[in-house]
Design a protein around this nucleic acid. Structure first.
Length: 485
RNA sequence: GGCCCCGUCGUCUAGCGGCCUAGGACUCUGGCUUCUCAAGUCAGCUACGAGGGUUCGAAUCCCUUCGGGGCUACCA
């Protein structure tokens, strides 16, 4: 009775995969892993005008980057392939022909203009819009008349009287009256399949047991089920449906650049960890049930069930994603942190990647680890250690040029010059005894001046550690340079 | 317009008839800590959309209403 679970993620890559897509993919994947089932990845590229190879490759790349590995699909193959719908055209053509033959479907010769006119009239008359069944029972004379006009027919599914019911794992019993599910098109006039045909055929042929997908597809479910019927599939072999709630932007609108940014590629460039993205996304519409929120991919697999997914939409909150990312970054070992960070430093041209640079970066990472929320912040934070033409930020300049600051810098220079052992402990001891104890200055004021002189900014990693990393020579020359301003 | 889905703090959520004067997290505000910024820590603000039922008892069940969203393609 308990079939092995097979969940599929089947995006139509008409652009970069976005937050909503990935949340769906994540749930698909987690459910497959949770049940010990298989995760199938299929590309729905029946809309040839909108899907491109570039997007398909980007989708594959994004999934891999996130660690959502699939058992069947592009690159890995599988016994139910191919996994690109554009490579399965003859399969769909076969079923379309069969449906016609069985009279489950029929050719419809209405032109787009005629259909639009009908919809227009329906709207005006305040009736449920939809195909009016015009070509349902065409005589052979009528058909040849259309053909002689040069019209090619689309394949349209015949929706029988009655209704469709099914159980949605998230929403419970669903019932749709066919009065509101008009006959729909399965294949274009040129024979190419539409989503309505391809999804249903593939889910059955690929033996998918669970369809977890966006809520927007809820009302098209009766159409999928109609295709299963026409295919002669037994009810117990229909996949189970679970319609996931939407992920929306900060306002109630769709996610956009203004309220969160949609493309996963963007988050990758900003320096978010795949695990943080997955962790955060998992919390959108699902929760472990207890108070824990920081979950690893492993824990997610152990805990995730569709039944615990809620039915209401969630708003995307960048702040919380950042908080989670910061937590995950702090939990990284220095070597891991280094591995993630290096590409950002190189891309920002802070370093070129020499062994000496990497060594210095590695020594500097501990003092910035708890100060960043994403890797893209690292270059700005460590830049002062590498710049050849050191300059003090314009905003901070005034604070090192007044006489009080000059006094601090002069004294610092004098105390630091004789230091043989250049460590943050010795630097701190020297400056504390002279600036704070002798001169009686407030630490904030005294160290502030030194900070600006050596790091170029009022905001920096801890001062003494920064100076240690910078080295004695550079530290002293920067202080001297500041004195000369 | 029609059909469908959804409705707990600003946000994500816990809650599945009494454990709730509603818990956690993020945000925000204030304090502590402190060489800046962070991190850490303590405290605080703030929610069951509304109205009717059912019940000894409702955030939890039912109805209505209002609000939000989706679908209504030869897109998916």
């Amino acid at each position: 009775m308990s079939k092995k679970v097979k969940v599929r993620f089947a995006p139509s890559p008409t652009g970069d995969l976005h937050v909503g897509n990935i949340r769906t993919a994540l749930f698909d994947w987690a459910y497959a892993r949770h049940t010990g089932g298989t995760f199938l990845f299929r590309i729905e590229d029946t809309d040839t005008t909108r899907v491109t190879d570039e997007y398909i490759n980007a989708a594959i790349d994004t999934l891999k980057w996130l660690g959502l590995d699939w058992d069947e699909g592009p690159e890995v193959g599988g016994e139910n392939g191919p996994y690109l719908q554009s490579k399965r055209l003859e399969i769909y053509a076969h079923w379309a022909a069969k449906f016609i033959e069985q009279k489950d479907a029929y050719f419809c010769y209405c032109s787009p203009e005629e259909l639009e006119a009908v919809r227009e009239a329906q709207r005006a008359a305040n009736v449920a819009p939809g195909y009016n069944g015009h070509c349902r029972e065409l005589s052979s004379d009528q058909v040849s008349a259309f053909k002689s006009e040069g019209r090619a027919g689309v394949v349209r599914m015949r929706m029988p009287e009655g209704g469709t019911t099914f159980t949605d794992l998230i929403r419970g019993e669903m019932a749709f009256d066919h009065k509101f599910v008009p006959d729909f098109v399965l294949a274009r006039a040129d024979g190419s399949p539409l989503y309505t045909l391809a999804v249903a055929v593939d889910d059955i042929l690929m033996k998918v047991t669970h369809v977890l997908r966006g809520e927007d597809l809820l009302s098209s479910t009766p159409r999928q089920i109609r295709v299963y019927q026409a295919m002669g599939v037994a009810i117990e072999d229909y996949p189970v449906f679970a319609h996931l709630p939407f992920v929306m932007g900060a306002d109630n609108a769709k996610l956009s650049k203004r309220n969160g940014e949609v493309s996963i590629a963007w988050y990758r460039e900003k320096g978010f960890l795949p695990e943080a993205i997955c962790n955060y996304l998992a919390l959108l519409g699902w929760s472990p049930g207890d108070d824990r929120e920081n979950v690893t991919m492993k824990e997610l697999c152990e805990l995730f069930t569709v039944e615990k997914v809620n039915s209401s939409p969630a708003r995307f909150d960048m702040k919380k994603l950042e908080a989670i990312n910061g937590d995950k970054i702090r939990a990284l070992t220095i070597d891991e942190f280094l591995k993630w960070t290096l590409p950002f430093l190189i891309k920002a041209k802070v370093i070129t990647g020499t062994a000496e640079e990497i060594d210095l970066v590695k020594r500097a990472l501990p003092i910035i680890q708890e100060r960043i929320v994403m890797f893209s912040e690292v270059p700005a934070m460590l830049k002062f250690l590498f710049v050849k033409d050191f300059v003090i930020e314009a905003d901070s300049l005034a604070k090192v040029t007044d006489s009080a600051a000059k006094d601090v810098l002069k004294r610092s220079l004098k105390e630091l010059e004789p230091l043989v052992d250049w460590t943050h402990e010795t630097i701190e001891a020297a400056l504390r005894s002279s600036l704070i104890e002798d001169m009686g200055l407030k630490p904030r004021i005294a160290f502030g001046a030194v900070r600006i002189a050596t790091t170029g900014s009022t905001i920096s990693p801890p001062l003494f550690e920064s100076m240690e990393l910078l080295g004695k020579e550079a530290s002293l020359s920067r202080i001297s340079a500041a004195l000369a301003l």
